[in-house]
Simulated scan of single mutants.
Amino acid sequence: MPQICIKATISGRVQGVGFRYHTAHEGLKLSLTGFARNEDDGTVTVLMCGEEKNVNALLAWLEHGPQTANVTGVTQYSVDWQAIDGFSIR
Rank of each mutant, 00 (worst) to 15 (best):
V14Y: 03
S88M: 12
A36S: 13
D85P: 09
D41Q: 06
K53C: 07
N38M: 05
D85A: 11
Q76L: 10
D40Q: 14
G65E: 14
S88F: 05
S11D: 06
Q3D: 11
W81N: 06
P66F: 01
G34S: 07
E52F: 13
K29L: 06
K29G: 04
E26M: 05
L28N: 12
G16P: 11
A36R: 06
F19L: 01
T45W: 03
Y21S: 02
Q15A: 01
V44R: 01
T33P: 07
G65Q: 14
E52L: 09
G16K: 04
I89T: 07
N54Y: 13
Y21P: 08
S88Q: 11
P2D: 13
T33F: 07
T75E: 05
T72F: 01
N38D: 05
E52Q: 15
V17R: 00
I89V: 09
L32M: 04
N54H: 15
S78L: 06
T45C: 02
Q3K: 13
H22Y: 13
T9F: 10
S88K: 12
L30F: 06
G42P: 06
K7P: 02
I4Q: 07
L47S: 03
A69F: 00
G18A: 09
K7I: 08
F35Q: 08
G18E: 07
A83G: 10
I4L: 09
G42C: 00
G86A: 08
H25P: 06
I10Y: 02
P2Q: 08
G73H: 09
T68I: 13
Q67G: 10
Q15R: 01
T9Q: 10
R13E: 00
Q3M: 13
E52G: 10
I10E: 02
I84M: 11
I6F: 10
Q67D: 15
V74W: 02
V44L: 12
D85N: 12
L58E: 03
S78K: 10
G86T: 10
S78A: 14
R37D: 01
W61E: 09
G50R: 11
L32W: 01
K53F: 07
I84Q: 01
L30H: 01
V44W: 13
D40K: 14
V14S: 03
F35V: 07
G73W: 10
W61I: 14
L47F: 14
L28M: 15
N70D: 14
